[in-house]
Design a protein around this nucleic acid. Sequence first.
DNA 1: CGTCGTATTGAAGCGTCTCAACGTGAGTGG
DNA 2: CCACTCACGTTGAGACGCTTCAATACGACG
Lengths: 243, 243
Amino acid sequence: MDKAAATSILLKRLRVSTNIDEEDQRAINALPIALKQVRDEESIVSTGDRPSACCLLVDGFIFRSKVVGGGKRQVIAFHQPGDIPDLQSLYIPVLDHDVTALGDCVLGFISHAPLRALVRHRPNVAEILWRDTLIDAAIFREWICNVGHRSGISRTAHVIFEIYTRLKAVQRTKDKSFQFPATQVLLGEAVGLSAVHVNRVMQELREKGLLRFERGTVTILDEAKLKDVADFDPLYLHLDPAL
Amino acid sequence: MDKAAATSILLKRLRVSTNIDEEDQRAINALPIALKQVRDEESIVSTGDRPSACCLLVDGFIFRSKVVGGGKRQVIAFHQPGDIPDLQSLYIPVLDHDVTALGDCVLGFISHAPLRALVRHRPNVAEILWRDTLIDAAIFREWICNVGHRSGISRTAHVIFEIYTRLKAVQRTKDKSFQFPATQVLLGEAVGLSAVHVNRVMQELREKGLLRFERGTVTILDEAKLKDVADFDPLYLHLDPAL
DNA sequence: CGTCGTATTGAAGCGTCTCAACGTGAGTGG
DNA sequence: CCACTCACGTTGAGACGCTTCAATACGACG
């Protein structure tokens, strides 16, 4: 895993739009990226930090979380390769949540200065990055609905189906299964359920033949039914930038 | 309420940063804004729409919502004058939620074309607008925590304290009270509680001497205690752009 | 081979929901 | 100006989803 791999992931992500021209690509290629390995559960940036770089997730998973009254933790997002989980730090200096590695992963740090310069001089790139943060927000909105109005089984199915859909979009699923090293405890922190209840929900999902969730790998057994139980409509992911 | 008033609200909002220069202000002043009155509960834009303009809230309140399985509605945001609730439509063509008037209000529509041109030629303005959408996202994150991990009374206190804090920041509160024409049903849709339970929570908040919520006006009785019950930390609002 | 994190199971408790009834005030038409 | 209506707020009672606590099982790892 080297700098070229990181640049390639970034380019792939930005090139979803046809607006990127050769000049833009050259500028992106010229971007300095500092690679770093982090291990499972390792903190990347935390609440109150004022980072001077953004972090591109090159390989592995990341989650973002906030601490809610009395020390409980709410997971607010899961990220996959290609995502820049703290892109907002470019324009909001103080971080209002924590970013943590979910399993071992590879990061590429891009300093704010060159990134800001890129955004200033390459409006096409700026638009795509802005758009990326807007989709981030769209996912947050869906998560509000998820924890706000769906039942335990439905919301659990929903987060998993979301991850599945996003991974499939970048060819990171094998058949109907994918790696996802979250524990039931962490999943509970994401959907606002106790770990005990997540466990019961998982059993129900398994018994109903919808999915298996075991030791870091998820297998979708019945995609249509799962989507139905999850009350999942992919519109909010805005996967096709033309739409 | 005329176009000058709308432009003034917009300028005030954008000028939070010292980065805006005279040239930027001229460009903002030149922006065509079409005023429109809408009445309580009237739909402004809906899921699936492809708006060709963004809407600046000039006076009144707006809420955004999504429909969750089986017709239930989740309110995902409340907006106040100066906000542009559908700014994201500038770069995400299809809307993934509904935008509705909360009480009668005055809107200023700004077409995408001149807004995109402004963003292209005035990077200072682009940054502030981008920042605005990032703060929007920060508020969504906090709402996930709210519905995910807080008790009924705490989450209800939290939304109200958030509105209070944001209104105070733009001098739209009188002493410790402000206008807010939401019903208990709508509030329930925002915090993920039934209307019946919101009612009971409101009684508890009143009995504890924390706040009164009556016919469109909210009065904060004990700011410190309410903040405590709400588990409220204003960091996520990023009110001071210098921080 | 013991230890520790994770998954699993059971049972009791409670926060919130649902249903259903009733109160209240504002607006409307006769 | 009264009677009607309707939306909103309020109250009570029973049901249920989920939590908490506590104990056990399992598997990875030093």
